[in-house]
Computed example of a mutant assay.
Amino acid sequence: MNPESRQRIRDALEHPPSPPPWGWTADDMDRLPSDGPNGEPGFFEQLELIDGALIFAAPQSRFHERTLHGLVTEISGQAPDATCAVGRMDVKLGHRTRPCPDVLVIDDAAADDLNRTFYAPDEVHLVVEVVSPESEERDRKLKPPRYAEAGIAHFWRVEENDGRPVVYVCADVERPPRCPGPTARVKTSLPWRRSATSGGRRGARGMW
């Protein structure tokens, strides 16, 4: 990191948890220390950037972890040739937006680079967000159109229903997508012939 970038980060850290007056950038995410401004361990390890503001993730529930692991395993076994599923990697959507989806399907060529910290939208074929209570508004309303505007073709939202995952598939992703609400059912085309979901809603038995 050059001296100018180091000073920029030091100046910005005077403002947490609010963004600095000039806002954070996607590139700043690679320059943040792991510990917080007061030495809090792991302070910056699980976050994403939305419109220049850092969003800190709430503690992960067992349902969230179990679903994430199950989806990566299931999708990895079904993804088309030259693609693979990865978990919790950033996607750089713009200068000030860099979300961290729970699951992504990306090109093998991108996955082979072990030094990558984020992927570009044209390397991503599917993003999956597992909804937590604190992320409902972002996952249901904010993120789907952002992914679509960036050209990512497929978006799944996973919610809990009586302890089991329910998958909602967004349609019409060439435009800001129509995503069903938490009680809706939808049928639409899928990224490949087989899937962790059938139609719009399924208690995902066998997902893990």
Rank of each mutant, 00 (worst) to 15 (best):
F63M: 06
H64M: 10
E65Y: 06
R66P: 05
L68A: 14
L68F: 02
H69A: 15
V72L: 13
T73E: 12
E74H: 08
E74G: 08
E74A: 15
E74Q: 12
I75Y: 04
S76A: 10
G77Q: 03
G77V: 01
Q78T: 11
Q78C: 15
D81T: 04
A82I: 03
T83Q: 15
A85L: 02
R88E: 14
K92N: 13
L93C: 14
L93F: 09
L93V: 12
G94N: 10
G94C: 08
P99I: 03
P99R: 00
L104K: 05
V105P: 03
V105S: 08
V105D: 09
D107E: 09
D107W: 03
A109D: 14
A111I: 06
D112H: 06
N115I: 01
R116D: 02
T117G: 09
F118C: 04
Y119V: 06
A120W: 01
A120R: 13
P121K: 06
D122V: 00
L126K: 02
V128T: 00
V128F: 00
V128M: 04
V131Y: 03
S132A: 09
S132T: 11
R138I: 12
D139Q: 14
K143G: 11
Y147T: 04
Y147E: 09
A148D: 07
A148P: 13
E149H: 08
A150F: 02
G151R: 08
A153I: 00
A153C: 07
